[in-house]
Structure formats: structure tokens, C-alpha cells
Write a protein that binds this DNA or RNA. Structure first.
Lengths: 141, 141
DNA sequence: ATATTCTCGACCCTTTTAGTCGAGAAAGCA
DNA sequence: TGCTTTCTCGACTAAAAGGGTCGAGAATAT
């Protein structure tokens, strides 16, 4: 739900891939430059992202990263879920251990947290990567 | 939006005060015990909370903390806002500095973050402390 | 006086997050 | 073949955030 800098970088990297869809693999260095992300850090992030099945990479001269699905078929929710996993909100986050919950597992906070989480993921799930790609500036003549 | 352990402790402390409303000041040690919060840490938290105008304290023998408003008049939103301040969501959180935003301040993320934030605070604002106080177990005979 | 309870600032420790680095492996090119 | 490019992998470091503690002082009641 709360997105770290790293996870925002990941999203922006995917957006950049979406922006260049159809132009073949995009180099990490290119993404890093376009999105102002530290290069070596981005390498790590994209490496992780490969595990999601959303992107893949090719090495060598014409190498780089590319999307495995259309931008409109990738939701922010699916990316976020992959990056941080779904939090276990059935159990109240206020209680370190469930055994010593001061409300004896009848805790009103649990419902609050899960409602919040649901609201957030509703938004994430209805937002696709395509929605995040900036519109091309209209050509002037 | 994202609540730290500390901020959840704060909320639970207030809930405990609400639970005991009308019984005079509640000692920190009592709150700590009831809500399973580390005592010395709770002292710090309640000290901060005094600045919100929602609670106040009295020292000495019959001292302790107490609410300055009715539980139903305190929203979770007002507490959270005091604890963490409203994030500055007009500007995209992805960009370290606004000057070097790769999207040139026309960033689709900004809208996403603010929609998420709004959704979360809608829930926080419509939830009062009273809603979080567990129902008294019905007396059986 | 004295016991009680909040008050204040400084302090410490652990975990998370951000970011870097060097060497290696695949892919293309000459 | 050998050279260049670009991803790949694991280890590593640094900074920040978060959680929690402590001692001494100040108000309040008996």
C-alpha cells in the first residue's frame, strides 16, 4: 500500500518500457536516463521485475528490457502485489503477535485496516500502465 | 496514510481513554497495560499527543491522561493528520526534486497518489474513536 | 516531607531502504 | 576467433527510519 522509492522506480521503469513499446528492447541505461533513476540501482530492480513475468530481457548488442504484455493489460495493482506481496490484513496490524491482542481478536482496527487496504487496491487495480504513460505532445507546425 | 507502530499505539491509547471516559484521568501505566504498549515508549507518544489538543494530562497522585472531546467527536483522520501531517501530494512523490521531474510536472503519478490519499482519508475521516471502542460484553445471568 | 505520576531531552539499537561494485555470461559483430 | 555491448548475480556499504529506554526534574495530592 505504501510505496517505497524503489517500488516507484519499478513502476516508472515499466512506464518507460510502455512508452517505447514496439521499438525493440530498451537498454537499462536508457531507462535510467529517461526516468532519472540511479543506473546500478535500476539494474537490481529490473532484475527483480523479471520474476514477475511482466517483463523480460535480452543481452548483448541489441539487448535490453521489454514488456511481455500490452501496457493496457498491466495494472498497477498487479505490479504492486508482485513487489510487496499482499499484506496479511485478516489479522490486525496493531498486534505484534495475534496471541496477545489486547482486544482478544475482536479488534475494531482490523476492519479499519482492511477497508483502507481495499480502497487503495481498488484504485491500483483499475489503473493500468497505459494510464500512466504521458500523452505524446501534439505536433505543432 | 501508512501507519507506523508508533502511530497505531497512539490511536489505541486514545481508544483506551475513550473506553474509560467519565472515570477521571487514566494513568499511563494503566493504558500501557490495557493496550500492551511498552510503558516508556507510551509516555513519549502521549507527550506528543498533548500537542494535538485532543488530550490533556494532570500530574500527581490522581493524575493521568484524559480526552478533551467526546470519542464520537474525534475522527481517526484528525489524529492521523496530527501525527504525520498531510503529505504534500500536489507534487509527485516519485520525483526527488520537482525541478528534475522526468515527466516535466505533467506526471500521471501525481494524480494517482492523490486519488489514493483521498480514498484513505475518506475512510479515516468517517471513522471516529467511538467506532473503535470495543462493545462491552453483554452481561449474562 | 514524601509518594505518585506526568514531563523532557538525550540516548541507543535494530531493521529497512537506498544505492554501489566487480566479475561473469550471453549476444552480436568484425 | 576475439572484441564490444549489455544484462546478471551476489556481496557489500551507508544512511535513514523506526522502536524503544533511561534518568532526573516538576507538579500534585496526602
Amino acid at each position: 500500500m505504501y510505496l517505497t522509492q524503489r517500488n516507484q522506480y519499478a513502476l516508472r521503469a515499466i512506464v518507460e518500457l510502455a512508452r517505447q513499446v514496439g521499438k525493440g528492447p530498451v537498454k537499462v541505461s536508457e531507462i535510467a536516463k529517461a526516468q532519472a533513476i540511479p543506473l546500478r540501482f535500476l539494474e537490481v530492480i529490473l532484475g527483480q521485475l523479471k520474476g514477475s513475468g511482466l517483463v523480460d530481457a535480452k543481452r548483448g548488442y541489441y539487448g535490453g528490457y521489454f514488456l511481455l504484455r500490452q501496457p493496457e493489460d498491466i495494472t498497477v495493482g498487479s505490479v504492486v502485489r508482485f513487489l510487496q506481496g499482499e499484506p496479511d490484513l485478516k489479522e490486525c496490524q496493531s498486534c505484534i503477535s495475534n496471541r496477545q491482542c489486547p482486544f482478544e481478536n475482536n479488534c475494531a482496527f482490523a476492519s479499519l485496516w482492511s477497508r483502507v487496504n481495499e480502497a487503495v487496491f481498488n484504485i491500483y487495480d483499475e489503473t493500468t500502465i497505459k494510464d500512466l504513460v504521458p500523452d505524446e505532445p501534439v505536433a505543432r507546425f
